[in-house]
Design a protein around this nucleic acid. Structure first.
Lengths: 246, 246
DNA sequence: CGCGAGTTTGAAATTCTTCAAGATCGGTGG
DNA sequence: CCACCGATCTTGAAGAATTTCAAACTCGCG
């Protein structure tokens, strides 16, 4: 899930006030005078190796996490072995909000590549949010955004075709890469076809066929995990127009 | 979505301190000494007639709503006419959290029957949440629960069969009715087969067939919108066990 | 150079949808 | 009080999309 074009700075800045993910993350919209107070919030950073869990279903919840570098998937496992990937997460995004509800994380968060997160003590966050209006509001916005994007995921899963789903997925990635200063048209997928399939409610073979179809139609070019979007307009039309089905 | 067994009190109480939905709603976990301060939050109540919107996609966001009586669906409409029901909501549940993110509601909330909601000014809520720790935490829990249940909806849509989806739906309703003091086994659906289908990512005919199948198998009895659950254990097994498909 | 994980592709099987017709229910007006 | 109407629901049969099963291919890596 790392884009090909620009280079991510790898300097380790331990403070929100200095962080280049500023405008994507929790500090957004907070007055300069208050920003420094955030730094106590994210004292700790944590490195997670590829394929390793940041947390697991049932772990006690004490913190939320902001992705500093790398990327994650979150998933739910059913007893019978079925897996549902519930999200792919990139830098600046917040993980762990599901834990607030019961005090236990309700899903697994797994690193898709070697990654680094800022650990945000939930207790301290609540405390600070009571003191800093802007932080409170931004935190609520982050949670609300997750709800909104979950709803559009339900829309995708509930009423789109395989090709539409993949198109929506690619356009969503493209947009998120753009927001991070990467190329909108060329990127590298960090997840397997199977994980994409699980996320989109499709089998990996179906995902593969959809990729092939897009390539055949000249919409994208695919080389394993390298994706280049060639005709994003037609990709968008694909989503909106196919007749109402399922 | 009103259960058949007990009678819902229809007395109009204008305050959280007196409300019988207390343990389902926002005031949960708040100290008695603080409860009275909530009453200023929900000064206004609003009545919504069946089929009427509480709010619509794109309406400016200023308030969230607690359902006092009745029930709602929320849905998203695509340009091409496709509809996705993103949730069914019963008394004590909070509507409108999707609006915080952008300042505009991102879905429609439609009454499934004549209903009544408490209007909670979002500005006042943020203000009070900064003052009352318990309120802040309960509000975060409510948002987090919505995220968790959206994720389990994604699981359902992404990896369950038609019969499993309907079983999960019925068991979920049953559980929520129980929490409200109604019968776990006998209730009245306030939504159509089409709305259920939209919610579950199925066509109405498929929903109808699944109902018939359950009845034939002696799992439930169906008479239009009256449902009686006859064998909830077997219904639960249905969800867990069917082989991994799709 | 070969191995294994991940991917692609084909063909058959399955589930769900589509299309179509009939049944049921609640409400309305004669 | 009863017949009728529209909306909703049920059921059947044919069709379509996706999954399943199977085999072959690709790429990175030891």
């Amino acid at each position: 899930m790392k884009a090909t074009a620009p280079v991510t700075p790898t300097v380790l800045k331990k403070s929100c006030s200095q962080c280049n993910l500023f405008e994507l993350c929790l500090p957004l919209g907070i007055k300069d005078s208050d920003i420094l107070r955030l730094d106590e919030l994210v004292a700790v950073q944590r490195k997670i190796k590829r394929q390793q869990p940041l947390y697991r279903t049932g772990n006690p919840f004490e913190a939320i996490y902001a992705i500093r570098t790398g990327s994650f998937k979150s998933d739910i496992l059913l007893e019978d072995g079925r897996e549902q990937v519930t999200g792919f997460h990139m830098t600046g995004e917040i993980l762990g909000l599901d834990g607030i509800s019961t005090g236990l994380y309700s899903c697994n968060a797994i690193a898709l590549e070697d990654s680094e997160v800022c650990v945000i003590s939930y207790m301290k966050l609540e405390e600070l949010a009571r003191a800093i209006e802007g932080l409170q509001h931004q935190f609520h916005k982050v949670m609300s955004s997750e709800i909104v994007s979950d709803h559009s995921m339900m829309m995708l899963l509930g009423s789109m075709h395989a090709n539409e789903r993949l198109a929506a997925f690619l356009l969503n990635l493209s947009q998120r890469f753009t927001a991070r200063g990467f190329s909108p048209t060329e990127f590298h997928l960090r997840m397997t076809r199977e994980e994409i399939g699980s996320y989109l409610g499709l089998k990996l073979e179906t995902v593969s066929r959809a990729f092939s179809f897009f390539q055949k139609e000249g919409l994208i070019s695919v080389q394993q995990k390298h994706i280049r979007i060639l005709d994003s307009d037609r990709l968008k039309k694909l989503i909106q127009h196919q007749a109402s089905v399922r």
